[in-house]
Design a binder for these strands. Sequence first.
RNA 1: GGUGCCAUACCCAAGCGGUAAGGGAACGGUCUGCAAAACCGUGAUGCAUCGGUUCGAAUCCGAUUGGCACCUCCA
Length: 471
Amino acid sequence: MKISLYNTMGRTIQEFKPINEDSVGFYACGPTVYNYAHIGNLRTFIFEDILKRELTHSGYNVNHVMNITDVGHLTGDGDDGDDKLAKTAKETGKSAMEIAKFYTAAFKKDFNALNMIEPNTWCKATDHISDMIKLIQRLEKGGHTYQSGGNVYFSIDTFPEYGKLASLKMDDLQVAVRDDVSEDLNKKNPKDFVLWFTNSKFGEQQMMWDSPWGRGYPGWHIECSAMSMKYLGESFDIHTGGVDAIPVHHTNEIAQAEAATNHKWVNYWIHGEFLLTDSGKMSKSKGEFLTLQLLIDKGYDPMDYRYFVLGGHYRTQIKFSFDTLDIARKNRLSIVSRIQEMLDNGAKKIEITSENATSLAQEFDESCASNLNMPKALAVLWKTLKSDKISDSEKYSLVLYFDQVLGLRFEEVKKSEKEELSDELESLLIERTQAKKNRDFGRADEIRDELDKLGYVVKDTAKGPVLSKKL
RNA sequence: GGUGCCAUACCCAAGCGGUAAGGGAACGGUCUGCAAAACCGUGAUGCAUCGGUUCGAAUCCGAUUGGCACCUCCA
């Protein structure tokens, strides 16, 4: 099946054609590990996971690389900033390495909890300093750099295509610095950016390395260019990130990579939109943000959040609210209980062969392949669950097939087991059944209320009463 | 100041020129001692507003209104 994707480079939906027939090189901008990831960050990673799953589902062998930024990510503009990790370290009294290690582990925990498939390669910035230095040297030889005020800068005037991803024009760039951003007088062009720092206003950094330009540390943008080329080659297929990366980070990455190699670097740039709250964007710098753990603490399953994210297209902003998350949970649990019911009725995984089932599979695949239209894909899932034209086994098999892309852990749904009820619950249930038999409905309803208080709901099914935990 | 994006029923949300997917809520029904669950059914003559293009527009163009993001760090 042909996959079409919205390419930020060109701003159009394009048919995906990889450089090599069967394999895809895929670089995803990873987290900066100076704090917990918030659920807005995680939305982007879920979108990337869906993209990766869809490519795999369509038969491509995906080589997925994700970086971990553990140095050099400034909090402010140019020289005016401070390394985020160093800043957090200063505030907490821990070493930058300790901070990075701690939040990397926290990130991976969230990553796994959301059922995201791990990259083939995780790469840490601090493990690749020499690769970055080599790339800067290459740029230096090509005449794309200059030194000023102790730092090495990239000169955007040496790269005529600068800004093509963000549709920036050179004229705009000259006046692009806003009033509220202090100008770095070392720069020839206000949009030039630092490749290597030796001179920080913030005194001794914890993490410094020797380089041809002196002891210091790399700029943020050079990390991704250097690491992606190391693992995926000097041209590869897909590079993803959040929309915020378009005008600066990815724009600068392109400048570095293409100025160094003199040829096109990445074919498809795919960006995920933001998750918003009532007051706008969720942001780490504002201090308050929701983490996955917080949702878990409130009783949500990580899959509830994943379902919530799948409910909106990756290129539209979605507004987070607990009301909407509740609906996502309800939907998801409804699907799970339908699956369980199928299994209880003896449904098994089988080959999908009937015409009706095949056409549902086709419809699902087309939705995913059409620029990852997951809301539509979920509609096909519901259509499948409600269809009376296919058998339970076909239904179940389709659900598992869909879940290769959805990643909602439907394969983990098991037959309902006779739950181990406490003696108290057991006897209440028996008493209620007896009361009903004796047409003592007053007592029966009393018991139902008692069970409700204990957090259980009674369902009177054809096979007798079933007790399930209240949601 | 500059640059983009968005506006679809009570809520969330697809749709990208051919006559409005899906889910939730609500309402009606079947079932039930009554409920819950489940199942069946109902729901926008209209897609912010006003113009325009077209045989045909939620979809294209222009204007207006409202919301958001980016041009510092951010997913």
